[in-house]
Design a protein around this nucleic acid. Structure first.
Lengths: 196, 196
DNA sequence: CTGACCCAAACGACCGTTTGTTTGCCGACC
DNA sequence: GGTCGGCAAACAAACGGTCGTTTGGGTCAG
């Protein structure tokens, strides 16, 4: 059976969701097919009716995480607004994505390196595209005079990504601040740092 | 043999160094005793002459990483200087530590969660102390009027930690910029963001 | 001759994956 | 309306291999 046909199976989708949770909690190598099967309520051999391999499962989860970030990033880039506003939108979207899909985001950020070289390259490509989006926005801001023209674009972009990507390590649901507030505060600090 | 006695054995130290490298490259669960033994040039059972368990090895590496950060942080806190200068010193020291001991730092940041609850609590304590140091410096800066008094201390501290902690994911030795330059640029951006 | 160091072998458990078979449900046809 | 083919889903069992760890005996330098 081709992968594309299996993709729509509800049972398969359910399994991917379970994998996202367990991989984020115990790590990819720390999660066995046995663990996954127990949560799904099935024998471990039965999982192979829905997936081709354990790695395929990791790839699905990582891709899901990557695509969410990329989608949000691209819509922030396309906004008709000043660069600082687009940067704010991107950072808020980033934090929201990371928090609303905490499991997939955690696996995307932590476990993608355990993919085989071929699959990892596909993800690396999406990471590169995302980082390019951030750099483009910062560059626009410098050109428009919104940001200091001596700002180092690559460092500014990395500060933004660092702030967003570390969130999943300390955020726990039910805190006093929602995703949006967190993103707003981060972006305010970062944008102030970039202003002339 | 007590743990304290074994600690000074050169062979054991060598093993811990190998563990730092392999755990950082392949993850804790992705590294087997077999892998470690091969690099040391020994049968895997022989490793147990030097350590009590695989987890003890992880604990040693994580502790090494944690202590390095904590030591640098404490010396930055004690500096006789304005808060902005101490914050700069801390961030530079953080990045330097992360880069100079990239393996131990990576394991400390990534793999500590796989420790058993008892050992993990010991590390969590060090993490808390480190975060408290950052918060203290920011609070001092606000009190002294160096930083905006509407700055959110916890968010500022987290931005600093995020910037520092994400470094290991993208830094590769031999780049154009050294650890010190990287730390300086980050701290400049952050401190600007905090100024009134 | 004492320790530090290591080997060879084995322990039971678990790993990811494959196989052949069974189950229960579906729409199609008599 | 009843029966039957087909099919997705799951089972039980086994594959060869690896896991972390223990044991007992050997080697060799101080």
């Amino acid at each position: 059976m081709a992968l594309a046909e299996r993709t729509r199976s509800p049972r398969r989708t359910e399994l991917i969701g379970i994998a996202a949770r367990l991989f984020s909690e115990r790590g990819y190598h720390g999660t066995s097919m046995q663990h996954l099967a127990e949560v799904l309520g099935v024998q471990r051999g039965s999982l192979y009716a829905h997936i081709g391999s354990k790695e395929e499962l990791l790839f699905e989860v990582v891709t899901e995480g990557a695509d969410r970030f990329l989608q949000r990033g691209e819509s922030a880039l396309k906004l008709e607004a000043p660069a600082s506003e687009r940067l704010r939108s991107l950072l808020v979207g980033h934090v929201e994505t990371a928090i609303e899909h905490l499991d997939a985001a955690t696996v995307f950020l932590n476990e993608w390196r355990y993919l085989s070289p071929e699959l990892r390259a596909l993800i690396q490509d999406k990471r590169d595209r995302y980082e390019a989006i951030v750099r483009d926005i910062v560059t626009d801001g410098i050109r428009a005079g919104e940001f200091r023209n001596d700002a180092d674009v690559r460092f500014a972009a990395r500060l933004v990504l660092s702030a967003g990507n570390w969130t999943y390590t300390w955020y726990r649901p039910g805190g006093e601040l929602g995703p949006k507030e967190i993103g707003e505060r981060f972006s305010e600090l970062v944008i102030r740092g970039l202003q002339p």
